[in-house]
């Protein structure tokens, strides 16, 4: 027997003290107006709870990876693409880790992903603050801005490739992979990078389409 009205269904649930219920109440805020301070706090707590790795180690290892890709591929465009692909595969898995450990409210819309990715995920995995900005009028694109990039520490990009290589392109792949798992097919790309002398880092995320849930088909028919 189904509960006839949403109100009654929610009262029958409110008696239980499950974390799912508390997550749901956080979602009662209007989408663009997630409580920003609360999101930052969620990110910070998840960051503290997680295993911490030395930022220098990450920066040096990542630098070695990019350098090796350069030796293998030569062309900076190919390196960008390969970094994006590596990130994509990371993102496909990372999203489950994120959802399970962060206790972030669920993303019910594309704009909501902007808040969650920027304020919670960046904080949780990189320990830096990022902010969503430049929403497109039809809500199919947004930018993520951040001032500190842990990957780009100690980095000097040679002049020859300075305008073609997106050194931290792995982030774009991670975002694309992660959002694809929550049914948003997106294209993410760097538009500004402090390594190129811009005043902040900017990743542009464009919604290509919302994926529909696939209903499993009966194999016998």
């Amino acid at each position: 027997m189904f509960e006839p009205s949403g109100e009654r269904a929610s009262t029958s649930q409110s008696g239980r003290s499950s974390s799912a219920t508390s997550v749901k109440t956080q979602d009662t805020l209007p989408s663009a107006g997630f409580n920003v301070a609360a999101l930052a706090k969620i990110g910070e707590q998840a960051f503290q709870r997680g295993e911490l790795v030395s930022a220098e180690l990450v920066a040096l290892t990542y630098g070695a990876l990019v350098r090796q890709l350069f030796l293998d591929y030569q062309a900076p465009e190919d390196v960008n693409e390969e970094l994006e692909r590596i990130g994509y595969n990371i993102g496909l898995r990372l999203v489950d880790d994120f959802l399970a450990r962060s206790a972030a409210p669920p993303c019910r819309s594309f704009q909501a992903t902007a808040e969650i990715v920027a304020r919670v995920a960046f904080r949780m995995y990189l320990g830096v603050s990022a902010r969503p900005a430049n929403f497109a009028a039809d809500n199919t694109a947004y930018s993520i801005l951040f001032d500190t990039n842990p990957l780009a520490e100690f980095v000097e990009v040679p002049d020859a490739v300075a305008n073609t290589l997106w050194y931290s392109n792995i982030f774009c792949g991670v975002i694309r992979g992660a959002l694809e798992m929550v049914q948003f097919s997106v294209r993410a790309s760097f538009t500004r990078d402090m390594l190129r002398g811009d005043e902040c880092n900017e990743i542009r995320v464009c919604l290509l389409r919302e994926l529909e849930e696939t209903v499993p088909l009966d194999k016998e028919t």
Binding site: Q13, A20, K24, D27, T28, P30, S31, A32, P106, C107, R108, S109, Q111, A112, N139, V182, Q183, E210
Partner: peptide, 17 residues
């Protein structure tokens, strides 16, 4: 409990409760 833009649509997104 849903964001404004999805509330007007027939089916809300995301996991069911």
């Amino acid at each position: 409990s849903l964001p404004i833009d999805t509330a007007t649509r027939y089916m809300p997104r995301g996991p069911s409760n």
